[in-house]
Computed example of a mutant assay.
Amino acid sequence: MKPNWTGVYPAVTTKFFEDETLDFATFTHNIDEQIKAGVHGIIVCGSLGENSTLTYTEKLELLTAARDVINERVPLIICIAENSTKMAVSFAKEAAEAGADGFMLLPPMRYPADDREILHYMHTVADATELPVMVYNNPLAYKNFVSIPMFKDLAQNAHFESMKESTGDIRYMTDIINELGGRFKILSGVDDLALESLLMGADGWVAGLVDAFPRETVVIYELAKQGRLAEAREIYRWFFPLLHLDVSNKFVQNIKLAEVATGLGTEYVRQPRLPLIGEERERVLKVINDALAKRPVLPQI
């Protein structure tokens, strides 16, 4: 199913057992609940999916499991985050054969490349298959920045259809639209800037806390697109302390704790990550429990 890059696209967590093996049953249950809540696509093996700790084979296994449970109800996107161009090209080809509908593509990992190197990498990987690509622009976490002149270059390649905007600067979105018009669909990649991004013209939301609160996330998106801003703002303000949990070095552990609280996951992570403990854990649990105690009744959309 071809993605239209519009709406809510959960970046789902990868579920593990305590021994760090893959928990496919919980993984697919969460995806099914996301779709029932009305999301518009699913992204697997992203940053929140602990991509860097997964083997090549595990990523393809997760893709297959997600494909089977989705059963063409929504588009299935897989993240490509590799260290070498050769590996990224190989993975793209295998993922396409395994049933991916599109890619979320990060610039080269670990190496702080220059603009020429980034563009060469992105074009080479995108041209490896016929699938559409969303550029994941997150310079704060990954150091490689895709600038507007670089997006103008990528715009010449039809494989690039959208961007995940994770610079953290809401002003940048307006600059992008002014310079590039509607050439790329723009999806907000920062949970606690999502409503602001939608109001400034974003087409969608690559979301994190949606993994624990799928319906609330979808309702905020739909209300914003319908122009019901007072209702969207009220739910967003309730959601905001939770959304801050996505903007943290331990966002995976935070969101997995929230999934436990809503019955949509487990808190097991893969090392070097470790589960939260002590005061840090109690602080995150308080945010989650305070929100659950005031969980709003959602309006009809």
Rank of each mutant, 00 (worst) to 15 (best):
L198M: 15
Y56Q: 06
M87K: 14
I235E: 12
N83H: 08
L242V: 12
L106Q: 04
G38T: 06
R273I: 04
K250C: 06
N30R: 06
G38A: 10
V206Y: 13
C45K: 03
M134F: 05
I220N: 05
V89Y: 01
S166G: 04
I43L: 15
M109K: 08
K164H: 08
F160P: 08
A88Q: 06
I255A: 00
L105Y: 06
D246N: 14
G41C: 03
S197R: 08
L131I: 04
E61Q: 15
I148M: 05
R67M: 01
M150K: 11
Q34F: 03
F151E: 00
L48Y: 07
G204C: 09
K86P: 04
D127G: 04
H120A: 13
Y142A: 05
G265F: 09
V218W: 08
S162C: 10
V210P: 07
A96M: 04
D68A: 13
A207S: 15
T26C: 12
K164Y: 01
M104V: 04
V69Q: 05
I35Y: 11
T129A: 12
I148H: 06
D211Y: 05
I288A: 02
A202W: 11
K93Y: 01
I220Y: 09
R283P: 00
T53A: 14
G204T: 10
T53R: 06
T262F: 07
A141G: 14
F239I: 05
E282F: 01
A232Y: 07
V135D: 04
F91G: 01
F24A: 01
D32G: 11
D68C: 00
N178D: 15
Y136L: 03
H159A: 13
L274Q: 14
A207L: 07
V74Q: 03
G49L: 03
E234T: 14
N254D: 10
A155S: 15
A81R: 09
D211T: 14
T21G: 07
I177Y: 10
E50Q: 14
T21V: 08
Q156G: 00
K286H: 12
V8Y: 09
I288K: 06
E282K: 13
N83Q: 11
E279I: 03
L60I: 15
Q34L: 09
Y56V: 00
V219D: 13
L60R: 07
D191C: 10
A92E: 03
W5P: 09
Q156C: 00
S47A: 12
H29E: 14
F160S: 05
G201V: 08
V210A: 15
D32W: 00
F151H: 10
A88D: 05
T85S: 09
K250F: 09
M163A: 12
H244G: 01
Q226D: 14
L285C: 09
M1H: 11
Y268E: 10
F240G: 00
E82W: 00
L63H: 02
V269Q: 06
G201F: 10
S84T: 15
V218F: 10
R67W: 01
P272H: 02
L54N: 02
A224S: 15
S248H: 15
I220Q: 08
Y111L: 12
P107W: 05
Y172T: 00
E279P: 03
A202G: 07
L264E: 04
Q300A: 13
C45F: 02
I170T: 10
